[in-house]
């Protein structure tokens, strides 16, 4: 099904006839203030108008950083705008997988990962599809609210699976991996590092014992975690 170039139409709650994600208009996965900033941005108006899953590649292969919103005006990054465009297009699953699996463009890969985490409804599928890329250690530039930070493809994917908020977007609830394993919906994950990781764990335990206290490593999965640099802080207003 074709989509309408004018996003305002897609955002019009009366008129939305497109594909539903999680039972609702997928564009609503972004919070209203972010949506407004995206459709008001010049990048959106000039660069995102009329894109389909093929021509979107023209822009996605030119991405040079990830991020949510930045600056005092909380401008949306091209990354965020393209993610929004994907939610408007709702490309076929095989196309999203193609974006994810290709090797050449790392920003296209994480864009697809971000989309999958937002739009795919089966938790076990999200884990199974994204986890293989926890071995991709390529560097990524991240635009923060006030500047720049360095991250990696694997760290970004890790954030998607563990954090509740990434790139100015509250991620839909996902069951923790262990829960899905207990429910037999997911096989235990064999880490790419294998034995090495267990050795590291052993060392940690020794250290923990000597310190006499146990450090919480990943924090609560469903808890709200804010990043130190504040780049993913809540949007102000509504």
């Amino acid at each position: 099904m074709a989509h309408h170039a004018d996003a305002k139409r897609a955002l019009d709650e009366r008129g939305y006839k497109g594909q539903l994600v999680r039972g609702d208009n997928p564009l609503k996965l972004f919070e209203k203030p972010v949506r407004d900033r995206i459709v008001d941005s010049y990048y959106w108006k000039e660069q995102c108008f009329g894109l389909n899953a093929a021509t979107l590649l023209d822009r996605a292969t030119e991405l040079s950083f990830v991020g949510g919103t930045y600056g005092v005006a909380q401008r949306p990054t091209p990354f965020l705008c393209l993610a929004f465009k994907l939610l408007q297009i709702v490309p076929d699953k095989e196309i999203i997988l193609f974006y994810l699996e290709q090797e050449e463009y790392k920003y296209l890969r994480v864009l697809a990962a971000f989309y999958i985490r937002l739009a795919w409804e089966k938790d076990e599928e999200v884990y199974a599809t994204l986890e293989p890329y926890l071995t991709d250690s390529r560097k990524l530039k991240r635009r923060t609210r006030e500047g720049w930070a360095l991250t990696y493809v694997d760290d970004f994917i890790d954030d998607l699976l563990l954090k509740s908020r990434v790139c100015a977007t509250t991620l839909p609830k996902i069951n923790p991996r262990l829960f899905l394993e207990d429910e037999d919906r997911l096989e235990p994950r064999i880490s790419a590092l294998g034995g090495e990781l267990e050795e590291l764990d052993g060392e940690d335990e020794e250290e923990d014992e000597s310190n006499g206290e146990v450090e919480e490593v990943n924090g609560p999965v469903n808890g709200r975690e804010h990043e130190a640099d504040g780049s993913d802080e809540e949007m102000v207003g509504g």
């Binding site: 389909n52 093929a54 292969t61 095989e94």
Partner: peptide, 30 residues
Amino acid sequence: NSRQHLVATGESGEVRRAALEEVKDRFEYL
């Protein structure tokens, strides 16, 4: 991007959906 302009240029405002093959071709081209 406006309706007025799209009408004037004979465009529907509908964006054609791309199939996987087309996506792959575009990717190879880029």
